[in-house]
Simulated assay, not measured.
Amino acid sequence: MFVLDKRAFGAAMVPISVVSSETGIAKEVLRKWEDRYGFPMPQRDALGNRMYPLEQVSRLKLIKTLLDRGLRPGTVVPLDEAQLSELLPAQPAPVAGAAQENGDQLIDLLLRRDPNRLHESLRAELTRVGLESFVLTSLPRLTASVGNAWATGRIEVHDEHLYTEIVQGLIREALQHAFDPLGSPRVLLTTVPGELHMLGNLMVEVALTLQGARCISLGAQSPLPDIASAVRAYHTQIVGLSFSTSFPKKSIVPILRQLRSQLDGETQLWAGGAGVVGLDKVPRGVRLFQTLDAACDAIQEWRKRHALSPR
């Protein structure tokens, strides 16, 4: 492997070919990230070629590590090096072999434009590993494969939408056999206006349902007063919101603060999803979760605090 040497390029700058070799990130991907996320931010040499500071190469290596562990470019590329380093301990190391093979097969089926075989393949994976493992282990890796394929231009956005719709249908079907109508705590799940993505909420619904919670989903884009009204109508103890990377990050904290003010003090407000990663401030009375495991642990904490036994 080429070893970076500050003396070789003067002022610690390296060309895109070396950056790609050192990080394992293709040159065309680096260019696409530059346009889409504003990072990396190369300078230009006298011939107009991209030249990168070494500190950006270090950050790109962290990004590549997290991508290999299942996170999506939109989640990690905008983060600074300190935020990336904080994410590393929370992300499991990649599992070689079957997981990579399944991801490659999934992309192949999307490229073939074969929705029937795609549906059969995802259903087979769900049947093979079970609902919990599918949502907590298989799905994050498969979704990361789809996201990376879209980010690099291998598939189109309609391919990603097809994948999402099939996965959501399979999960909803499996959930019908998993939920306990008497489960506790009662968790209201939805997204706020402007947030169309529901896969994250659906994954949370599975994880919490399997922990014995009773999840009530309002679907996407619920107005904040309607959320507060639904909490009272359904006697829910927790409100869970999901934010994707496409949702404006600057709007998240004001929305959480506004909704928090509309809920009584006994109702907990939780937020998760890739969109909340890297938030600088968290309103008082709001809990953020970066992983499904953390949300599951919080359900167990709630149950212990309220002296309830798991089902």
Rank of each mutant, 00 (worst) to 15 (best):
P310V: 13
D280C: 13
G240A: 14
A230F: 08
T236C: 11
A98C: 10
G285T: 04
T164R: 00
Q268I: 10
T209L: 06
V29C: 03
F134K: 09
T137D: 04
G10V: 14
E34H: 12
G219N: 06
D104P: 00
Y37K: 07
A144K: 10
V192A: 02
H119N: 14
N102I: 03
R305L: 11
Y234R: 07
L87F: 09
R287E: 15
G183F: 04
R50W: 08
G24M: 14
T75V: 12
E34D: 11
E205V: 06
G70Y: 01
K64C: 04
D45Q: 13
V253Y: 11
D297N: 14
H158T: 09
V157R: 14
V204G: 04
A96T: 09
V14D: 05
M203Y: 11
E195L: 03
E22L: 03
L111K: 11
P223E: 06
A90H: 07
R113A: 08
Q105V: 08
N116K: 13
R284W: 10
A144P: 01
R36C: 00
Y37P: 05
R44L: 07
G183W: 01
R172A: 09
K250P: 01
G103R: 12
V187N: 03
V157A: 05
S133R: 15
A46Y: 14
G97N: 05
D280H: 15
C296L: 00
R59F: 02
F289W: 03
L142A: 02
A96L: 09
V18H: 08
Y52Q: 00
D5L: 14
T152K: 12
F39Q: 08
K6I: 15
H306P: 07
S138K: 10
H161A: 09
E266C: 10
Q221C: 11
I155P: 03
L259K: 02
L292F: 07
L71A: 08
G38A: 08
S309F: 08
L241C: 11
T291G: 11
V276K: 05
R112P: 00
D297M: 11
D226P: 06
A124G: 09
E132D: 15
P40T: 12
D45K: 15
V206A: 02
A12D: 07
Y37D: 01
V77T: 11
R287P: 03
V192H: 01
R36K: 14
H119K: 10
Q262E: 15
L66K: 06
R257Q: 12
D68L: 12
R128P: 02
L71F: 13
L308Q: 13
R305I: 02
Q105G: 00
I25A: 01
